[in-house]
């Protein structure tokens, strides 16, 4: 059994089928990719996998436990973390504060109003460790709004990591990034691979082919192809395309 498994997922909105008979396996310690054209159902798939929408049919298991239909909060507490396509950051707060707020210990301390949490040295050290994982330790005390777009994306990943996840789902992390920022993000995700199991939902095929151990291609709400990048690249039509040239 895979670390995270989805079986026969079916999702309808009204009279439209958005996901049909989706099977996905994500292995521990790997980077799994989901790619597909616009409107293929990637984001709905992401929202079902992370518990925002319950599927109409099908099951999902994480480390052998059935998580189908659990609330997003319960799913998050089990160690499944996600990013958002639209960045959710507190712009006026310092970079490190965005991480501190997302730490599970912060949630536990919040009820204790007497303690000024932002001066808590343990929380600070922990947040700093996460910032160093995403390469933002030097700007820890800058206001978030001063970050570049690429740094904001790194911070957003840091926020997802603050929950101490066992598996992290990243929704189109390259969206809006230029070539240089995409390259830096790729380096960052390669480093995170040592510590986390990662699922990347991506539109940028080149980015995904360079990073992922396994890729599932979604179109028409279904998995139309899957395999390692080299397996997918062996297809003669793929060889003829721009994807065939990626080493």
């Amino acid at each position: 059994m895979a670390f995270f498994e989805a079986r026969n997922i079916h999702k309808r909105f009204g009279s439209s089928v958005v996901l049909e008979k989706i099977d996905l396996d994500f292995e521990q310690g790997q980077i799994s990719g989901i790619m597909g054209p616009n409107g293929a159902g990637k984001t709905t798939c992401f929202n079902v996998l992370t518990g925002r929408y319950a599927p109409n049919r099908g099951t999902m298991t994480f480390e052998g436990r059935d998580i189908t239909g659990l609330s997003p909060q319960r799913i998050a507490r089990m160690g499944i973390s996600r990013s958002f396509q639209i960045m959710n950051l507190f712009d006026d707060s310092a970079v490190i504060e965005n991480i501190m707020i997302a730490l599970p210990e912060f949630r536990d301390m919040r009820s204790n109003m007497i303690r000024p949490v932002f001066r808590d040295k343990m929380l600070e050290a922990e947040a700093m460790e996460i910032l160093s994982q995403v390469g933002l330790q030097d700007v820890a005390w800058e206001p978030s709004k001063s970050l570049s777009y690429g740094q904001r994306r790194a911070l957003e990943i840091g926020v997802a990591l603050a929950a101490k996840p066992r598996i992290v789902f990243l929704d189109e992390p390259t969206q809006g990034l230029g070539a240089e920022a995409t390259r830096q993000l790729s380096t960052l995700i390669k480093q995170l691979r040592e510590r986390y199991t990662i699922v990347l939902i991506e539109h940028d095929m080149r980015f995904l082919f360079e990073l992922a151990d396994k890729i599932s291609v979604i179109h028409w709400g279904q998995v139309i192809a899957e395999g390692t990048p080299s397996e997918l690249q062996s297809n003669s039509w793929v060889q003829r395309s721009a994807l065939g040239e990626i080493a």
């Binding site: 179109h219 039509w237 395309s241 721009a242 994807l243």
Partner: peptide, 16 residues
């Protein structure tokens, strides 16, 4: 279906 020889999806669609 939108077939485009540059993006490689044709191969995936035909396999599907």
């Amino acid at each position: 279906p939108q077939f485009n020889t540059q993006d490689g999806y044709i191969g995936f669609m035909l396999d599907f």
